[in-house]
Design a protein around this nucleic acid. Sequence first.
DNA 1: ACGGTTCATCGAACCGGTTCGAGGCTAAGG
DNA 2: CCTTAGCCTCGAACCGGTTCGATGAACCGT
Lengths: 345, 345
Amino acid sequence: MATIGDVARVAGVSRSTASYALSGKRAITPAVRAKVEEAVRELGYTPNAGARALATSQTRVLGLLARFLEDEFAPAMLQYILGVTDEARRLGYDTLLVSEEDGVRALQRLANSRMVDGFVLLNVAERDDRLGVLREARQPGVLVGLPERTSGVDVFDLDFVATGRLMVDRMHELGHHELILVSQPEHVVERGGAYVWRLANAARERAAQLGIGLHTYFGSSSQPSIGQDLNGFLDAHPTATGLLLNNEAAAAALPSVLAARGLRIPEDISVIGRYSDDFARTFSLPFSSIDSAADELGRAAVQQLVARIEGRIAAGAPNIVHLISPEIHERGSTAAPREILDQSG
Amino acid sequence: MATIGDVARVAGVSRSTASYALSGKRAITPAVRAKVEEAVRELGYTPNAGARALATSQTRVLGLLARFLEDEFAPAMLQYILGVTDEARRLGYDTLLVSEEDGVRALQRLANSRMVDGFVLLNVAERDDRLGVLREARQPGVLVGLPERTSGVDVFDLDFVATGRLMVDRMHELGHHELILVSQPEHVVERGGAYVWRLANAARERAAQLGIGLHTYFGSSSQPSIGQDLNGFLDAHPTATGLLLNNEAAAAALPSVLAARGLRIPEDISVIGRYSDDFARTFSLPFSSIDSAADELGRAAVQQLVARIEGRIAAGAPNIVHLISPEIHERGSTAAPREILDQSG
DNA sequence: ACGGTTCATCGAACCGGTTCGAGGCTAAGG
DNA sequence: CCTTAGCCTCGAACCGGTTCGATGAACCGT
């Protein structure tokens, strides 16, 4: 493989001149630059990444730390990952994907060995044990997921508090008085998936303000148990007219559960979900839903990270916490409850 | 950050001695080795990956080239990716994930810049344009997916020919005479997804040998169109008693389609699918199926790749093509067709 | 007591880039 | 014609590891 020394020899200049001609960091006579570029083309020269990293202390690689929790819906993670890798590539970076269970060790390994210029952490827990290491690392880090303490890192997440409120508000506007909220399994919460109770608490609070009855439940993360769960919830609250879903498996299972019970949407029951649009598309879920915005979050996180890496953000600039506002993607699964329709009709 | 020079100074030895003490490539007095190790601990020393790569020409990083085709079921890809990253990590390697659309350019970039020690290509097409570059690269490569020409690379894939035969054989043993095969969308085949027609052709051939009627169709990759497709196929062949699925979306959609038509499994119709067990679990698909073995394939591919990288495979050793034999994971969705039961009952 | 091994350690070179300071050349100005 | 400034280019050092050959000390047998 050609080195910059080969390029220099072929172009008839010194190594340093070749380097400057390619980097443009010093003025080079056009004729010389042309000779160097010609030599590069002739030899098929590409800089050796290791050598460059050693000399510049920059690898142009980002570390992406995914965390796969059992009982969580894994495919959803792919959207975040692709958002990150695509945006990173667009900005000239490659992505090292780490799925190691021991995220702390992985983080230390990558940080100390200087393999990456920065970190993206996915699926961040309320008290994520990776954060301590990340704050001490010399490389900047961004999180996708909101932890308890956000100092020293930039954070991107869906605004789950606003999401909980929005779900209840929308149902309230339509005239519903009794709702059921199905969250992720309790395990997910215990292991730090704070977004689950953040949404649930906000929904509960808003429901209380509005005088709405809200029954909150954890649901399983896979069939067939989630189907049984759903039937149980519906049996327990026959007068509930609205269903809020913060659980992908529940969303996937609901159509057949409703069909089996002979319930139509939105005539008999209104539904609002929270999952990725991509998920909705693949399974053609007929529910109005709030997009998890995985792709958008991944991209925004990378942009911020790269800006920090490249020093485009003042060293002392405060860290940001960017929460994306939820929007309901309308698919016609909400309507006024039957009792209202009956009165008005 | 501590360098090996710092370690050497603290331990009171030369840099080379420190290096040998850590690598074990030359004999070192136990006492000296202990001092070096103590210094490492004290300073929190970790070798600089770039410097090591420069000196050894080894990065201990694998390049993972994913290819996301539209109309293909993306979440399935995650299983392969995790199989690769986990196994790589187990063997001491990290994984650079590339999702770039221009796989050829990505491959060239990584190969020439010496960022990786080897390549894993996912979703390999019949005539994959990445293969030419891969064969010329100095780094070894393994494929997950069987292309037309396999020279110069190791290949791992599910045996789709055997899969097609197995599906038909099993139905034949049960006494079925007319089957419907639903494949991936035609787009997937056109873009080189040869496994689709490999399975279909094998099934067709075996059906002909056995005197079984086989209707083969392409199906859409998402709802609701795949639901309409399925209804159309069933309408067109009311006497067919068995359904073979080589299309994830079809598998996901089938339960509700069958429910709507009032068909029970396996009493009214037998079904055999081909998708990942993980997919089956998440959606609790009630069909006997042949696992795509994504995790297993990813792991086997990495093992082979690492063996080549580390020279544990003789330089002249021929390339291998490892096709995993399909196995039907029984979930009770197959039985003898009604006509037989009626006769015997 | 002495030459020949063996063993542990050291110094220097090298991997392939980047970057700093120095110096040569040309052109402008007195 | 000589000085000075400015523009390009070069040589050397450095980043942080690994590895080869050399060196010196300890140990062996005779």
